[in-house]
Computed example of a mutant assay.
Amino acid sequence: MSLTKLSENKVAGGWHQRFSHQSSVNNCEMTFAIFLPPQIAQGQKVPVLYWLSGLTCTDENFMQKAGAFKKAAELGICIVAPDTSPRGNDVADDKEGAYDFGLGAGFYLNAIQAPFAQHYQMYSYITQELPELIEAEFNVSDKRSISGHSMGGHGALTIGLKNPTSYQSISAFSPIVNPTQVPWGHKAFSGYLGEDKTTWAEYDSCELLKQASSIQPIMIEQGLADQFLHNQLTPQALLDIAAEKGFTLNYTAHEGYDHSYFFISSFIDKHLAFHAGYLV
């Protein structure tokens, strides 16, 4: 598969690079960013953390705002940040151009409703096409973990739970844990998946946790001043199910922190260290 390099910058002894490529599953050109830690230049194969961003974001937000490079370089972790949706003139969008559906809001699922099914196959892109590309083109190992924020936290949890042998660990900042029960999820799932709610459950962390017999290590960070905490994120729903199942979630709530990248940058080192413990 042909990669087109869009940019590169040396940082923390390694390299941040952006690439575009033609995606066969999304049927359009996709963009991703990658941080290559200095260990790669020394000939080491390094593990990969896949970062999934939230609504309105692209591949650039986390890489520019999270402040993750120094710790990732220290730990020898490659970070891959894909775009949050397919893009292009032929890619369907929300009819009113809303921020929470369509472009920038792929929800990391495989759409089955027209016209979105033609391009919005983000679940297959994240779980199959992108890691196959990364492992073929860069000096990385097949050890993977996954993390994300908000919509991307939803993506990290659902993808990790659905693919327990593919991801060593899962983490999330301010995730949408129960999308079948909140407005963001209702809008996205009805548009991408239709009105059959049995299909919705396949992309709901709470429903997946109910069916799980075991789980990978999971870390969740939540700000208590988050403006979306009670009407969109509802972390208690996931915590209650975990308690009923006897699963341990590493969950921390923080007074005063909101939904922004100021919150993520405050605790990203903690999450990188967490993943490093399982990416050995």
Rank of each mutant, 00 (worst) to 15 (best):
G277R: 13
L55F: 00
S24K: 12
G67Y: 01
I241D: 10
E96F: 10
T252W: 13
G106D: 03
I126R: 07
V46N: 13
D196V: 09
L233C: 04
L233H: 04
P82N: 05
E60N: 14
W200Y: 11
H275D: 12
I79S: 10
A243P: 01
V48Y: 10
F173P: 00
A41E: 15
F32G: 04
K245P: 10
T31R: 15
I215K: 11
D59G: 00
G277D: 10
P82W: 06
N139M: 14
S205F: 10
A41F: 14
L109R: 12
P183D: 09
N231K: 05
L249T: 08
V140N: 07
P217K: 12
V91W: 08
T127W: 02
F35H: 06
N163V: 10
S265E: 13
F247G: 10
P183C: 02
W51A: 01
T165W: 04
Y125I: 00
G54L: 06
D269L: 06
G14Q: 04
K143W: 13
I126L: 03
D94Q: 11
G148H: 00
Y251W: 12
S20W: 01
G97F: 01
T58K: 01
F138M: 06
Y120R: 12
G67P: 02
K197D: 07
Y50I: 12
A188E: 07
P37F: 11
N9F: 12
N26C: 15
F19G: 08
E137T: 06
L75Q: 01
V48P: 09
S169K: 09
N26L: 08
Y257L: 15
Y108A: 06
K210C: 09
L239G: 03
N178M: 03
H21Y: 15
G160Q: 08
